[in-house]
Design a protein around this nucleic acid. Structure first.
Lengths: 197, 197
DNA sequence: CCTACCGATCGGTAGG
DNA sequence: CCTACCGATCGGTAGG
């Protein structure tokens, strides 16, 4: 019964990510699902409604993934944990349709959703920040991250991840993986103590 | 006589950057310029033509800005030069309309221009990379950047700059500047030698 | 879930 | 530079 509703959302997630919200028509979504355009209105009150539902699902699945990784951390190894977070991020970026749409809308939010998307972005960042802070504090206990404040630790990690986020689009998979490794290496050196390991 | 042609291009640069190519109509561009839509066709054969001209101007001005900064560098001070490049980038990001459109089309190129944009992207990256490479090599002569390869140096800088770019959209000016400083600090530590200054 | 249709807007043209 | 207009397509509705 609700099979088609989920199918519409799946196709919408894909098309909104590939072509953007404004440039995706309900007619082409319907065609891909195998129904006619007006039938979409049996499940969603408007195109905007459809977008909001797709977006909300996306956020929920991102937050869940990060919480799961947090649960799997070994609190004795801060450097490993921060790497795990980084890998999780890169992995989702390359394998999920959600990442493409999330990237698109955070970067170029469609007019009607600017505020909504901003709220989600801030919420999502709070989730990741709280994880980063707990990793940092554990590291400090172990005399890691010397000369770096909590805020600097968080900000530089988020900047790293945002940079990777953008670059995913520019390059082929091979070059992208090189880029990731290079950026990570410099980041890790940067947050490590000058006096070296 | 060609005053209106330039005005059309200025407005188009702004709107294409803010709203994207597909979601910008010739009617609204005309309105902003103070003419009617068909008059645009006195200066451009099509909407696609207008976009291509805007894009070509954009590339030219970006390349010029980077070349100018390169010319002002003091080759004895690699760390200062890389900081200058970083500042140039951040400055242009916050003050020029070109940067916004450029980032938009490199990430989410409108269908009809995918190949054209890719060509320009590769060209532009060659310019910035060549500047970074010459900074890096001067640094190596001075025993800076120990343990970092040329590719890693270039990749991590571009990642830093891409991260900053994304964050520019999301934060207030004050928070953004804090973020920039934190990201820069970790980057600089990361590319500097472990054995410290 | 469908067919048939709506007003609005799109890029673009004719003709002056 | 304009007015007037084109076919196509958009999101959305009526009615079954």
């Amino acid at each position: 019964m609700n099979d088609n509703k989920q199918r519409i959302k799946n196709v919408a997630l894909d098309y909104f990510g590939q072509k953007g919200y404004e440039d995706t028509s309900l007619a082409e979504i319907a065609k891909e699902v195998g129904i006619k355009k007006p039938s979409i209105y049996n499940h969603f009150r408007s195109k905007e409604d459809l977008f909001v539902e797709v977006l909300e699902d996306l956020i929920a699945s991102e937050v869940t993934a990060y919480r799961l990784t947090e649960g799997k951390m070994n609190h004795q190894e801060p450097l490993l944990n921060i790497r795990k977070l980084f890998d999780l991020f890169c992995h989702r970026l390359m394998t999920t349709k959600e990442a493409l749409l999330w990237k698109r809308v955070t970067f170029f939010p469609p007019e009607p959703f600017k505020d909504l998307i901003q709220e989600h972005f801030i919420h999502f960042e709070k989730v990741t920040t709280s994880i980063l802070v707990s990793v940092f504090r554990e590291g400090v206990k172990q005399s890691l991250f010397q000369g770096i404040t909590e805020d600097e630790f968080v900000a530089s990690f988020l900047c790293l991840v945002d940079g990777v986020f953008l670059e995913h689009h520019y390059y082929t998979k091979e070059i992208f993986e090189q880029r990731i490794q290079s950026a990570w290496k410099v980041y890790e050196r940067g947050v490590s103590s000058y006096k070296g390991e």
